[in-house]
Nucleic acid binder design. Structure first.
Lengths: 122, 122
DNA sequence: CCGTATCCTAATGGATACTG
DNA sequence: CAGTATCCATTAGGATACGG
C-alpha cells in the first residue's frame, strides 16, 4: 500500500462523537438557540427517555462538543450550549444535510413525514 | 420556534448511513482504491468477523454508497467500489477527518497507536 | 427542575463451522 | 472465494419510579 495507513482514525473519532440516536436533533436545536434548558430540550424532542437524553448530553459534554451550565439554587436551572469545538462542526453538518437532501431525498422525506405525523398525534 | 422544524432529518439519514464500526475504514480503502475484492478488504481490516464485514457492505450497497460487482465462474470474484453517490461524500469525510485532527488530536492519536500496535502483533 | 436507580428489550458486533 | 447459519456477548435505547 503506498498511501498512509490509519488516515481513517480521525473519521472514526468524529463519527463516533456524532453517533447516537438523538444527537442530530440535539445539535440542530443547539445550532438554532444560544442555549437551551434541559427540560425545554426534553420537551421539544418527542418521546426520548429522560435517561437517554441525559446519556447523550453527557457524552457530548465529555467529548467537548457542548458546555453544561448549572445555576445553583432551587429549583435548579441547567443550560446547554455549543462549545467552539462544537460550533466548528456547523459547516460540516450542513454539508451532510445537503448531501442527504441531494442523494437520499426519498429517505429524508420519509423521515420528515414520520416525525411530522408523530408530532401531530401528541 | 421561528426556524423550520425537521431540518435535522437529512443529517439523521446521512449519519445513519455512516454508522457502523467498520464503515470509516471501509470507506477509506474504497477512496484509495478503484475497487477491492472482498477477501482483500477482509485481510486489510484487522480482526473483523466475515459476517460483520458482509453486513456492513450490504448496508452500504443498499444505501447506494457502494456497488458490488460479481464475476461468475469458479472461484467467484466479487469487487466493491464507490458509487457516484458515495464519491460525493469524499470532501465531507475529509472535513470530518480534518476537524478531528484539529479538535480531537488526542483521541485520534490514541486510536492510531492502538491500531498500529494491533497490526504489529499479528 | 434536574438527575438517579432499576430493570428490560432491541440492536450491534463477533466466533466458529459449514457450503456452492 | 464469497457467502450462510448458529449461537453468543456487549451495548444502546427505553419505561418507570424515586430523590435532592
Amino acid at each position: 500500500m503506498k498511501y498512509n495507513e490509519f488516515e481513517h482514525c480521525g473519521l472514526n473519532v468524529s463519527l463516533q462523537m456524532l453517533s447516537g440516536k438523538w444527537k442530530p436533533i440535539i445539535l440542530y436545536h443547539l445550532f438554532h438557540n444560544q442555549q437551551i434548558r434541559f427540560t425545554e430540550l426534553w420537551r421539544i424532542i418527542p418521546k426520548v427517555a429522560k435517561k437517554v437524553l441525559l446519556d447523550h448530553l453527557r457524552q457530548m459534554e465529555n467529548d467537548g462538543l457542548i458546555i453544561r451550565n448549572e445555576r445553583s439554587g432551587f429549583p435548579p436551572e441547567v443550560c446547554y450550549r455549543l462549545s467552539e469545538k462544537g460550533k466548528a462542526l456547523g459547516p460540516i453538518l450542513s454539508s451532510l444535510e445537503a448531501w442527504a437532501n441531494e442523494h437520499a431525498a426519498r429517505e429524508v422525506e420519509a423521515l420528515r413525514k414520520a416525525n411530522s405525523a408523530r408530532r401531530k398525534s401528541e
